[in-house]
């Protein structure tokens, strides 16, 4: 081969390599995959917090949920402080699993029903009970007892469906970006109340009211388990609720978040209600034998300004019903 031909061929080969590299560069998606839900328009999640109710916290000691709920709401100023005539109220329950209520892996149906009744009693025009469960939604709501109890109390039970999800990006968020949010039940809502059981959690140590917002996400959300503390703190930033309630009357103290055996439960006789979800969860983790400083996601949420782990600074109302 002569020099001229060699240079010509080397040049062609170089151009070929460069072209392939350019093609790869052009096709490269630097942002990575999003949870594509079609062409739906993104949404913003409004604050559901009620002005004038900030930093309220009540800890009720009782082995009976319904009287504890009534006493707790009374301690916070009454249900009327949060729900008014004509309001659409969304109650975000934990209906994650198709398990019976006795196992404590889901929100207690008696508590759900009583909360629905109280909201309707003060004039709410509509009460929606919803969740996007881990298991089959219809089975979860039926077998957990939440669906029948909520409907009997006058609520509308809304199950997830494809049209309910809209892309959502948490402002300044690291994980929740262009992710499907179950916005349908929240559309037009005036109030949002979170109602969650207190549970041990294999990944996050504890699952209480902030982790409960996980049930508003859609898509392959299990990818977030790789950064469980990060996602829970972002969930706390994502939702500004009107009120959250942590049910620790019986705590799922072992083998959470599913449990399975009645022996996984421990009677802890405590219902915690408040408007600061970090404070509520900080009280709740104590029922699992943990201090707030031992739970990473609480620290992250507090750092992000979601609330305080120093719940005593809120001067909580403590009531013992016996």
């Amino acid at each position: 081969m002569d020099r001229r031909r060699f240079l010509l061929r080397a040049g062609k080969a170089g151009l070929g390599v460069a072209a392939i590299g350019a093609l790869g560069w052009w096709a490269h998606d630097g942002q990575g995959p999003s949870a594509n839900i079609g062409q739906a328009e993104g949404v913003k999640l409004p604050s559901f917090a009620v002005k004038g109710t900030e930093k309220r916290l009540a800890v009720i000691k009782s082995s009976h949920r319904v009287p504890a709920l009534r006493a707790g709401l009374e301690a916070l100023g009454g249900i009327g402080a949060f729900v008014g005539a004509g309001h659409k109220v969304v109650i975000k329950v934990n209906a994650a699993f198709a398990t019976p209520p006795a196992l404590g892996a889901t929100s207690n149906p008696e508590l759900v029903a009583e909360l629905v009744r109280l909201c309707l009693k003060v004039g709410a025009r509509q009460v929606v009970v919803t969740d996007n469960p881990i298991n089959d939604p219809a089975s979860c709501f039926e077998l957990s007892g939440i669906g029948p109890a909520a409907r009997a109390a006058g609520a509308e039970v809304v199950l997830p469906h494809p049209g309910a999800f809209r892309p959502y990006t948490l402002p300044g968020g690291r994980l929740i970006k262009d992710w499907p949010l179950m916005y349908g039940p929240l559309a037009g809502a005036d109030r949002l109340i979170g109602l969650a059981p207190v549970k041990d959690h294999h990944r996050s140590q504890a699952s209480v009211t902030m982790k409960n917002w996980y049930g508003l996400l859609g898509g392959r959300r299990n990818v977030f388990h790789q950064d469980i503390n990060g996602i829970i703190s972002e969930l706390g930033r994502m939702v500004a609720p009107s009120l959250v309630i942590a049910d620790g009357v019986a705590t799922l103290a072992h083998n959470g978040p599913t449990g399975g055996s009645l022996e996984d439960l421990r009677p802890t006789d405590t219902l915690i209600l408040g408007t600061d979800q970090v404070a509520v969860d900080s009280v709740a983790v104590g029922l699992l034998g943990l201090k707030p400083a031992q739970v990473a996601w609480l620290g992250l949420a507090a750092q992000a300004g979601v609330g305080t782990t120093d719940y005593e600074s809120l001067n909580p109302t403590k009531v013992e019903l016996g």
Partner: peptide
């Protein structure tokens, strides 16, 4: 994890 959520990691 669709069945047992966070316990799947175990």
């Amino acid at each position: 994890s669709d069945k047992i959520d966070g316990k799947a990691e175990l």
